Every structure is written in structure tokens, then in C-alpha cells.
Computed example of a mutant assay.
Amino acid sequence: MATAASESQIFDRRALRQHRDRAAAGFDGRFDFLTKEIGDRLLDRLEDIRRRFPLALDLGGRTGDLARSANGRGGIETLITADLSPKMIARAPGPRLVADEEWLPIAENSLDLVLSCLSLHWINDLPGALIQANRALKPDGLFLGAIFGGETLQELKASLAAAEIAETGTLVPRASPTVDIRDAGRLMQRAGFALPVIDSDMLTVSYPDVLALMRDLRGMGEANALAGRPRRPWRRSILARAAADYANRFSTPDGRIEARFEVIFLTGWAPDASQPRPMRPGSAKTRLSEALGAVERKLS
């Protein structure tokens, strides 16, 4: 497990662990609404697949929301919850494991299913972590994950950036880079998954003001963990200007503000000879026009 941020790292994993340790005591029941909602959507997708998963891993499972919600859903028989934070994982039910997603301590070809709910956006080497998850799966095992996409908290990022530039004339790194949905499929292919499927949902949450939103992010353990982040806190003048800008640009008719969370769902299978494969180009024996009942004409 890495204990300090190096120059090659985007994220400070030690800081992330500290943020989650700090958030652990108050997470359940107050700040777990996003992970619960997305966890349910992951399990809904799993229920569409008619098969059993004797041994599954919840990668980055925090306090075990998925383990509580699964309870036999989606064909899961045994679910191990793994998280970077010892204080988070201490609150999880059933089998549990303190583990870093970047250094997965799981034997190859040992799992039937790997789940990950809103944790992979803090990974320095996301393709490498996906490759490790793929290797941990048995042939024809399933990976099903949810990760924050590029549209997440764009309103907050825009207001904070505008306020900081107006107050200081500079902009320092505070916003985490995120995965674009157009790149997600290539990430899955690069990691060696077969039959990848990518889709996304947008969740909108309303708050009385921007400070309430930022308190929620801290309570979720989602405070800034960039390796190059400033170590000093926000100036009050910057926060006040950002709050005014946010309310001016992104408020609802009832005076509240809205925050959007884009969630990208990643589905892929560990390769196996039994899986369907695309036909070789030019090998079809029936013309498309015949299948469509259309008249085929040659272009001049």
C-alpha cells in the first residue's frame, strides 16, 4: 500500500484513506445516499443476468452498503467487502478485507464477480486496476462497476474556479480528473474485458446552499485528495463569492441549488472460449437488403 504521494501520482491515496477514516463514523444513514442509490442500480443490472455468482468482491465497498442490499439478489452467494479505510470496513457486515484497489490482494481466477460502486475515480492507474480485477475473475466472470463521469459537479467546479480567479487571479488544482463516457469503453477493452457495455445515468441532488453540498462531500469521504492540492483551506472570501455565483447561475425556483452527479456504468466479462465472437468481415451469407426487405441499388 502506498503511504505517500509521489510525483507520478495524481491522487494521494494516504489522504483518501484519512478522509474515509474521518467520515466512517457518520457515513451510514446520512451521507450514504449516493452509494445506496447507485448500489441498487448495480444490483438491478445484475438481476437481469440469469446466473449464480458463488464468490463476489465489492471493491471499494466503504461500510458495506452493497453487502446489506444484496442479501441474495442477483445470484450472489458470498460477497466480500474490501475498502482502503480500516474504519470504514470495520462497519461492514460479513466477510471483509482492508485492501487498496491499486494493489488487489486477490488470487487470479478466484472470483465469479467483481463489483465496484463509486470508488474507482480515486485510482491513479485505472487501466491497471481494471486489469487486476480482470485477472482475479474466473473465465467468463463478470465485472460490474459504477464510476463518476466528467459531468459530475460541473456547477461546483465552475463556481469555485470563477471565485478563485476573481479573488486571487490564479487557479490551483482542486478538481479531480474524471472519466469521459467516450473513453470508458476503450478502458474496458484495454483491460482485456470481453463484450464491454457502457451506459450512464445523471442524478440531480438539491441543497439549500453550496456550503451544505460541500459538507456532504466531506461527510462522504470525498474531500480533495489530489496529490498536488493546496494544503491551506479555502479563503472565506472565495467561498462567499462561489456561493453567490452558484446561487445566481444554478438555483431552482424555490431558491435551492442543484448538483449533478454523472454515473458511468461499466460492464465486462473475463474472456472465455464459450463467449460469442463477432463474425469475420465479409463472411455473411445473407445480404442486409434481404433481411430488411429493401431494394438494393448500386451507387453510380
Results as ranks from 00 to 15, higher is better:
residue 182 R to P: 00
residue 217 L to K: 05
residue 110 S to K: 08
residue 131 I to M: 06
residue 205 V to C: 10
residue 81 T to G: 05
residue 16 L to V: 01
residue 296 E to I: 00
residue 249 R to S: 08
residue 95 P to M: 03
residue 292 L to D: 05
residue 72 G to K: 04
residue 88 M to L: 14
residue 13 R to P: 06
residue 27 F to Q: 04
residue 45 R to A: 08
residue 91 R to S: 14
residue 187 L to Q: 07
residue 104 L to E: 04
residue 44 D to T: 10
residue 221 G to K: 02
residue 152 T to L: 03
residue 62 R to N: 14
residue 15 A to I: 02
residue 134 N to I: 01
residue 225 A to E: 01
residue 5 A to T: 03
residue 7 E to C: 01
residue 219 G to H: 03
residue 295 V to L: 07
residue 248 N to K: 11
residue 183 D to T: 07
residue 282 G to S: 09
residue 28 D to C: 13
residue 87 K to A: 14
residue 106 I to W: 01
residue 227 A to Q: 04
residue 111 L to F: 10
residue 266 L to M: 15
residue 27 F to A: 02
residue 298 K to S: 11
residue 272 D to T: 06
residue 48 D to A: 14
residue 144 L to N: 01
residue 68 R to S: 10
residue 182 R to D: 12
residue 201 D to T: 07
residue 49 I to T: 11
residue 169 G to P: 14
residue 151 E to C: 11
residue 175 A to D: 09
residue 228 G to H: 08
residue 278 P to V: 10
residue 270 A to F: 04
residue 15 A to H: 00
residue 220 M to R: 09
residue 53 F to W: 08
residue 294 A to S: 12
residue 125 D to R: 08
residue 225 A to L: 00
residue 198 I to T: 07
residue 65 D to A: 14
residue 82 A to I: 04
residue 4 A to Y: 06
residue 277 R to Y: 00
residue 271 P to A: 13
residue 125 D to E: 09
residue 103 W to C: 06
residue 253 P to I: 10
residue 157 K to C: 10
residue 27 F to G: 01
residue 63 T to A: 15
residue 260 R to S: 15
residue 107 A to I: 00
residue 232 R to E: 12
residue 215 R to V: 03
residue 287 R to Q: 12
residue 205 V to P: 05
residue 141 G to Q: 12
residue 216 D to R: 06
residue 157 K to W: 15
residue 198 I to M: 06
residue 220 M to V: 03
residue 4 A to L: 11
residue 184 A to L: 05
residue 74 G to F: 08
residue 156 L to Q: 06
residue 261 F to N: 00
residue 274 S to V: 14
residue 295 V to K: 11
residue 107 A to L: 12
residue 37 E to G: 05
residue 2 A to H: 09
residue 81 T to K: 06
residue 41 R to M: 05
residue 157 K to T: 14
residue 256 R to N: 13
residue 191 A to Q: 08
residue 184 A to E: 04
residue 25 A to T: 04
residue 282 G to I: 10
residue 34 L to A: 13
residue 275 Q to L: 15
residue 32 D to S: 07
residue 259 A to H: 00
residue 235 R to Y: 00
residue 151 E to P: 08
residue 188 M to I: 04
residue 65 D to R: 10
residue 236 R to L: 10
residue 66 L to S: 00
residue 100 D to V: 02
residue 101 E to A: 14
residue 20 R to A: 02
residue 223 A to P: 03
residue 78 T to N: 11
residue 265 F to T: 07
residue 75 G to E: 15
residue 5 A to K: 02
residue 283 S to Q: 12
